[in-house]
């Protein structure tokens, strides 16, 4: 599987990853190499094999619907890049 420049740009956009244009050919080469490795999976047929999502056959636990966490807004916002009046600030989204 060989990825082209446009593929890398599309994937990077989907992942919201800024990639330096000069690095695109290197990513194309590296990711194509990884996909070649991954395609060895085709060597074995898996018809009828159920997918395994999780190593232990466990059922999702449920807990009682009650408040367990206290509000620590101020503590958590101390490490935020930009906050105001308890809100996280980002560039304007709607004009």
């Amino acid at each position: 599987m060989s990825l082209e420049k446009a593929d890398i740009e599309k994937i990077a956009h989907l992942a919201r990853l800024g990639i330096d244009p000069g690095d695109v050919p290197v990513y194309a080469r590296n990711l194509s190499g990884i996909l070649d490795l991954v395609e060895r999976m085709e060597r074995v047929g898996t018809d009828g094999v159920p997918p395994m999502a999780h190593p232990l056959q466990m059922v999702q636990r449920l807990r009682v619907d009650e408040v367990t966490e206290t509000n620590q807004c101020d503590k958590f916002q101390q490490i935020a890049p930009q906050v105001e009046a308890g809100l996280y600030l980002v560039p304007k989204v709607i004009e």
């Binding site: 994937i11 992942a15 990711l31």
Partner: peptide
Amino acid sequence: GEGFGAEVKRRIMIGTY
């Protein structure tokens, strides 16, 4: 793009693909 290094970006992109 600036916060992650090259290997992390590679893996995010492979996973996204």
